[in-house]
Design a protein around this nucleic acid. Structure first.
Length: 870
RNA sequence: GCCGGGGUGGCGGAAUCGGUAGACGCAGCGGAUUCAAAAUCCGCCGCCGCAAGGUGUAAGGGUUCGAGUCCCUUUCCCGGCACCA
């Protein structure tokens, strides 16, 4: 056996061995329980980042652990290959998006392989391949036929200089990222998926997702946002016609406090009023400035302007003024809201700003209403009852809502309604590098889906990217076509699909990536039965990707593609972000140039806090930004390759698993990598020294062991139990590693040179190597082969606890006086409460702090402590 | 702004069901080994205090025999907000 741990050699050998034995190949086998372990597939951005290493190491640990437990494991990998960065790279470096993407895939695949993940590479695919995306085009046409895909106007960010639609990410402080132009909202026709038709289902099934973190279920629940309220109308007469202005409210109990209504700038009433009101027209134009991101809309200053139009209060008959408010969203509900300034915080601020009337209609016991400032209780529907509300006076929330709804219904002006915050999913993108939408626009037949025999609509790969408009719209050879229905000249849709489309079903395709005649087949039934056993990915996907994937599973069920699989992901582990500091300098026109942390020296004060930073290249200061998730856009990614090259894959894997529990965000620092490497070298040396002294048969019971040796064997079997629990139930790997470190510390301190000790040493080392094998498989493969010549760690079972080894005659209990730790006692493991109490009271340390006073109470916590209260 | 999560030594973190705060590791300090260095090994290591002891889990309050853990308030940081993936 080599006396030195040389990672490069053993990692090459181990990977070669796994390749030759097909160790990671997954084949359907009904004799074994299956374990489908899925990690979110990467976007091929160029090279792996730390988040990938973390994500895929977690997946590999769980895969290998379950394989050792006897499961038939599938761990696939692929590429989420469509997306905006490829177009940006094309612009910046004058390379074709396809070529750029495929070369990134090549590099990143080799990086993943060098990390030794047990991935079944035969199932690999990239979503930009026509063999993949043809099936989503096929599905699109089915959904279109069912009305689950439809067309309507949607609002986008429009760059008036580059004449192009921008993503929210490309709008910075209201300006286009390249042109610097002020962004405008623009309405264009887009295709939408009717996810709202499944809102009730998507909400209800959250309750059954016991394998999901509570926080993710809660976020999805709030995102779907079911609320029950009342949809009702304010009648009005305009241009000689009787009309109705519809609004939705969850606070119908406050309807008598309505002092104005507010509509969105895009609302037809606002458009009509602006016709003869130049000031209002100017305000509406102003409202159209800026991007469409909700965070921007919600944080901007609330502004409004009266339209000069009035509507009639449906219950009081009073005239109510209509305002245009920049905070009212056309996309939510009817694009109009009733305003009750007394009982809605936003309306309160708005009314104060514009001196609009505020009418109190709810009173709570012991509280005084005042216009001096907003108080929490004004808007609390769980408190108080109606006042100043005529026949509703004295009614509390629920009763008042019922009474108001009944009265509105009697007048034909409203009814109770369930509303969702969830909106339909806009899937059209005015971009090149995506899956073409399979629609043909015919002047006489309208929108016609592309027939199956003409699928796939292949995305041309050699195009010129200019950053202004979609390249496809400039390619007649792409868009000129014949109508499938009438055969006349027609134009192909040039928009592409949102890339979330690809990632909403890829996990099913892994079961049957080679099927050229169908989207999915019966193998999905084997691997996905009861849901994918473990899904692992970043917490940033907690809402959109996971919700869309759940939605797609239901769509595919309803199109008859798969049986009722239920939810796609039975167990979900949301890993925390790998975050790193950001650094930048401001270029011309205030544009931020992001600088990689590796190129920066941070200056800290004596307490270790950063006080400034300089660029290594020129020694000049750079600005310190926030600590954010590692991302290309902020250039704060740390390349794991240097780590792998210097220390090997096992050290990289061990270090990132040891640094923090998986669901916690991890602030990147490479301090401590050395320690991970040192631990592996120490493990190597322990095994080496033992092997040099001669292999023996591992001990299987406590016969002949000294007391100290029995302690070590107990520690070993406790550790086995702890590590299995950490891997299997808790999914907390840092504590599993710490437990094995403790075990080896104890091993070092125990005298093991006699025959019984040597057998115990063999047992400890064999077990420790297998306990760590899921995390550091290369060194595990090598060391297990040395400890048991001719064996293969890949086929070894996970160590099993011997209950006999855990037995203990005497235990130690802590003694507290008034909750403060004062001493310790040793008692027989089976001592009863009275005996423990007596021993604790007799403890000299305890007596000292009892100060001669009698015990008022003695609390005995079995196996832990005794608390004496005086 | 709204929704979700988090804050524990110099640092990463542990404490799993309300029961010994700081496991394990990093950094640091002292020592052994060495011609020297690297590597390795042994010891120390929250803060105050000579010690006895006191004190300490973002801040403030509460519940409890007992609170890092439960409740309330405040504060800072992170993720998401529908066209980044």
């Amino acid at each position: 056996m080599q006396d030195k741990y040389i990672p490069a050699d053993i990692e090459r050998a181990a990977q070669q061995h796994w390749g030759q034995t097909g160790a990671a190949r997954a084949v359907e086998d009904h004799a074994k329980p299956k374990y489908y372990c899925l990690s979110m597939f990467p976007y091929p951005s160029g090279k792996l980042h730390m988040g990938h290493v973390r994500n895929y190491t977690i997946g590999d640990v769980l895969s290998r652990f379950h394989a050792m437990q006897g499961y038939n494991v599938l761990q696939p990998m692929g590429w989420d290959a469509f997306g905006m960065p490829a177009e940006n790279a094309a612009l910046a470096n004058n390379v074709a998006p396809a070529g750029w993407t495929y070369s990134n895939i090549g590099y990143m695949k080799q990086q993943l392989q060098s990390l030794g993940f047990a991935i079944d590479w035969q199932r690999e695919f990239a979503t930009c391949a026509p063999e993949y995306y043809r099936w989503e085009q096929w599905l699109f046409t089915r959904l279109y036929a069912k009305g689950l895909v439809y067309k309507k106007l949607g609002t986008v960010n429009w760059d008036p200089v580059d004449h192009t639609v921008l993503a929210n990410e490309q709008v910075i402080d209201g300006r286009g990222w390249r042109s610097g132009a002020l962004i405008e909202k623009r309405e264009i026709p887009m295709y939408y998926m009717k996810i709202t038709a499944y809102a009730e289902d998507l909400l209800a099934e959250l309750d059954n997702l016991n394998g999901w973190p509570e926080q993710v279920r809660l976020m999805q629940k709030n995102w779907i946002g079911k609320s029950t309220g009342v949809r009702f109308a304010f009648p009005y007469e305009l241009d000689g016609r009787q009309e109705k202005l519809w609004v939705f409210t969850t606070r119908a109990d406050t309807i008598m406090g309505v002092t104005f209504v507010a509509v969105a700038a895009e609302h037809p009433l606002a458009t009509r009023a602006a016709q003869d009101n130049p000031e209002l027209a100017a305000f509406i134009t102003e409202c159209k400035q800026g991007g469409v991101a909700e965070a921007d809309l919600a944080t901007m200053e609330k502004k409004g302007l009266p339209t000069g139009l009035f509507v009639t209060h449906p219950l009081t008959g009073e005239r109510v003024e209509v305002w245009v408010g920049n905070y009212v969203l056309m996309s939510y509900g009817d694009g109009a809201v009733m305003a009750v300034p007394a009982h809605d915080e936003r309306d309160f601020a708005f009314a104060q700003k514009y001196q609009l009337p505020i009418k109190q209609v709810i009173a709570a016991d012991g509280e005084t209403f005042s216009l001096d400032g907003w108080q929490e209780w004004y808007g609390d529907k769980s408190r108080g009852a109606c006042v100043n509300s005529g026949r509703y006076d004295g009614l509390a929330y629920a009763a008042a809502v019922d009474a108001v709804a009944t009265d509105l219904a009697a007048k034909g002006l409203g009814e109770k309604k369930t509303q969702f915050r969830l909106r339909d999913w806009g899937i059209s993108r005015q971009r090149y590098w995506g899956c073409p939408i399979p629609i043909i626009h015919c002047p006489s037949c309208g929108d016609v889906p592309v027939p199956d025999e003409q699928l796939p609509v292949v995305l041309p790969e050699n195009v010129e990217i200019t950053g202004a408009g979609s390249p496809l719209a400039k390619m007649p050879e792409f868009y000129e076509c014949r109508c499938p229905k009438c055969g006349g000249n027609a134009r192909r849709e040039t928009d592409t699909l949102d890339t979330f489309f690809e990632s909403s079903w890829y996990f099913l395709r892994y079961a049957c990536p080679d099927n050229a005649t169908a989207m999915v087949d019966e193998r999905v039934g084997y691997w996905c039965k009861g849901g994918i056993d473990q899904y692992i990915g970043g917490i940033e996907h907690a809402i959109l990707h996971l919700l869309y994937s759940r939605f797609f599973t239901k769509l595919m069920r309803d199109v008859g593609l798969i049986g009722d699989l239920g939810e796609p992901f039975a167990n979900l582990l949301t890993q925390g972000m790998v975050v790193a500091p950001t650094f930048y300098r401001e270029g011309e026109n205030g544009k931020k140039l992001w600088i990689n942390p590796a190129d920066v020296d941070v200056v800290t004060d004596e307490r270790g806090r950063p006080t400034g930073a300089t660029l290594k290249a020129d020694g000049q200061p750079v600005t310190i930004g926030g600590t954010e998730k590692m991302a290309k856009s902020k250039n704060n990614g740390v390349d794991p390759q240097a780590l792998i090259d210097q220390y090997g894959a096992d050290t990289a894997r061990l270090f990132i698993m040891f640094a923090a529990p998986p669901d916690q965000s991890l602030e990147w620092s490479d301090a401590g990598v050395e320690g991970a490497f040192r631990f592996l070298r120490r493990l190597w040396k322990l095994v080496h020294d033992h092997v040099q002294a001669g292999l023996v048969t591992a001990c299987t019971n406590n016969d002949g062991l000294s007391a100290a040796q029995a302690d070590l064997r107990r520690k070993l079997h406790q550790t086995m139990g702890k590590v299995a629990d950490d891997y299997g139930r808790r999914k907390q790997f840092n504590t599993a590693i710490a437990a094995v470190m403790e075990l080896l510390n104890a091993y070092d301190k125990t005298h093991l040179t006699d025959a019984a000790g040597r057998a115990l040493a063999q047992e400890v080392l064999e077990s420790a190597v297998l306990l760590l094998f899921p995390i550091v498989p290369h060194i595990g493969q090598a060391l297990y082969g040395e400890l048991k010549p001719g064996s293969d760690a890949c086929r070894a079972a996970f160590p099993k606890v011997d209950p006999a080894a855990l037995k203990q005659d005497e235990i130690e209990l802590v003694v507290q006086v008034n909750g403060k730790l004062r001493g310790a006692i040793r008692v027989p493991a089976d001592a009863d409460k009275a005996a423990i109490e007596a021993a604790a009271l007799a403890n000299p340390e305890a007596q000292k702090f009892m100060d001669g006073k009698p015990a008022k109470k003695v609390v005995v916590v079995p196996g832990r402590l005794v608390n004496i209260v005086v």
